[in-house]
Structure formats: C-alpha cells, structure tokens
C-alpha cells in the first residue's frame, strides 16, 4: 500500500458555522443536499413521462389522420364527444376490465394455493418452486406463441390432443374464445409471480404466533383463516397492485395470439386506431388520454392501498 500523508480531522470551526443564525441557512442547503441524489432520476422521469403525455393531450384536441395529406387541425373536444358514442371503445374498455380483473384475481387465488403448498417441507421443494416460477420468466411473445401453436392449436396442440383422446371434437380456442385464451396465458404467467410474493409473506410469518395459535387449540383451517390470511393481506394487496399495473397494459399476448380479434383491450384498441393501421392519431390520442384518466383513478386507489402498507410499516 502506498504511504499516505496523515490528515488530522478538521476540528476547528473553519466552516465558520456556529451561531443560531448560521444554522438557518445550513438547514436550507441541507434540504437540497438531501434532494440532490434523487434529482437526476426525478427529472428524467418527469421529462420522459410527462412530456409525451402533454403532447398527447394536445394531439387529442386535433383532427389528424396520418394516412392522408390533410393537415393537422385543431378541433377542440370533438374527439372526446365522438368517443362517448363509439361502441368499439366501450367494448375495449369492458375487455380491459374483464381481462385485468379476472387474470389478477385468478393469479392471486392460484398463487396463494401454490404458495401454501410450497411452504411445506418436502423432498425437492426448491426444485418444485423453480419449475413453478419459470412461466413468469418466459418472454410474453414466446408464451403467446407456445400456447397458441403448441398447446391450444386445433390440429397439433397438446390440449386438443387430450380432448380428442376423450372422444370430443377439437376446439380452436384462440378463435372461439379469444379473450379467455389470453386470460389463460396471463394467469399461467402471473400465478408464479403472485406465488412468490405470497410465499415471501408466509415465510415472514413469525413461528411463535403460529405456535401460540396451536397452544390455544386452533386447528389448521381456523389458523389459516384467522391468523395466516390476515397476515397475508398486505402481500395480497401488493400482488394485486403490481398485477393491475402490468396486466392492464397487456399488449404482447394479444398481438401474438389473436391480433385483437374479440379480445382488444384499451391499449390494443388505441394501438389499432393509430399506428396499428387506423392512423387516426387525433382520435387515438383522445382514447389514450381517457385510458390515462381511468388508469389514474385505479392508480389513486392502488396508491392508497400502498400508502396503507407504508404507514403500517412506519408504526
């Protein structure tokens, strides 16, 4: 090691601070000193999310068909008025809600079940967990392709092979039940994620509480409903929140499995109306603004849940 010069700690008031008056200004700079580390991330996020959003607001007030030579024209709230009577929009909204609620709900339900099963000690526990989490890691595009072509395909899909084995007609799932096919794939991918969160919750449960319940004479079922489930509540909420964030914005699966037929959610609908072939940039922007407003209502609710989680922690 290189011999370094010894430096005594500065213990004489070279900074010239010291009185009550000087402290005030040092507190002000203290606030900025604390803010400084998060400013880069903050500014970048503001620029990258808010600027496009403001542009969208402006576009939504214009008539702008990108596939024609018409110039962009300011038309006020007409796009929003048209939207109210657009039945395609409302059916996409309904698809969105259905898809999000059902997939998040089922993923949480199955995820909890799997977590409970995996929280027992048995041979090969870690390996079974590894197998179960894998679907979450699969690229959504690949998940969609594999399910569409190899599981559910009417001529060479594995599931239809079983169905035929039972003596029934093969079903072409993706065209007959487009929405539910997508839900199946989403649940397949997101159940492992929910399982991991719930598992973290189960493992965070203090064993002394469970032992106390046992001493108090509670059986397995009542221990689960009266102690484990309330304990898991915040984990379920966290899972639901993250699930809603990601599953309300599903695009890849729809694109690969159905290309939107009978299963377009709002993001996909906006896509279809704009760069996905509609080129109605003005109207599509209006749709997306409405989507954002909806999302913020959900987000507000979600963040309230989150704030509950954070304040519990502070206590």
């Amino acid at each position: 090691m290189v011999e370094q010069q010894r430096i005594e700690p500065a213990d004489n008031g070279t900074s010239g601070k010291g009185g009550g008056r000087a402290r005030k200004s040092s507190f002000l700079s203290e606030a900025w000193k604390r803010r400084l580390p998060l400013l880069p991330a903050f500014l970048i996020v503001v620029v990258l999310t808010q600027v496009p959003f403001l542009m969208s607001i402006y576009f939504s007030l214009t008539r702008w068909r990108a596939n024609t030579a018409e110039p962009r024209e300011f038309i006020g709230v007409d796009n929003y008025i048209d939207l109210v009577s657009n039945s395609f929009f409302w059916s996409a909204a309904w698809n969105s809600i259905l898809m999000t609620v059902v997939s998040v709900g089922l993923s949480l339900l199955f995820g909890t079940g799997l977590a409970l099963l995996l929280d027992r000690k048995f041979f090969g526990q870690g390996f079974a967990r590894t197998l179960i989490i894998t679907p979450f890691l699969v690229m959504p595009v690949v998940a969609g392709l594999v399910w569409k072509n190899q599981m559910l395909n009417s001529s060479f899909g594995v599931i239809n092979w079983f169905i035929e084995g039972l003596g029934m007609e093969p079903i072409s799932f993706a065209s007959r039940y487009p929405l539910w096919t997508i839900v199946v794939v989403l649940v397949w991918q997101w159940t492992p994620f929910m399982m991991l969160i719930i598992l973290a919750g189960l493992q965070g449960q203090s064993s002394s509480v469970l032992e106390a319940a046992k001493v108090d004479g509670a059986n397995g079922v009542s221990t689960f409903f009266q102690i484990t489930l309330p304990h898991l509540r915040s984990y379920l909420e966290l899972g639901a929140l993250l699930g809603v964030i990601y599953l309300s914005q599903v695009y890849d699966h729809i694109r690969v499995i159905t290309r939107g037929t009978g299963s377009a959610n709002l993001p996909y609908f906006v896509y279809l109306r704009s760069i996905g072939g509609g080129w109605q940039f003005g109207a599509a922007s209006a749709y997306s603004i409405v989507v954002v407003i909806f999302s913020f209502i959900i987000a507000n609710f979600g963040l309230r849940v989150l704030s509950g989680l954070l304040t519990d922690e502070g206590a």
Binding site: T49, Y268, V270, A284, V292, F296
Partner: peptide, 24 residues
C-alpha cells in the same frame, strides 16, 4: 410523495405515449 410519483408513472399506459415518443 416522491416515491408515489415514481410509482404512479408505471400506471401511464405506454401505448398512450407511443405516438409522441415516435415523433420525438
């Protein structure tokens, strides 16, 4: 509030800003 701001941006559908992003 800073944390909420960061998380809330995850609720902005990407599809809603794809057009401005493209233009920019």
């Amino acid at each position: 509030e800073y944390l909420f701001f960061f998380i809330s941006t995850k609720f902005l559908p990407i599809v809603a800003s794809i057009l401005p992003i493209y233009i920019l």
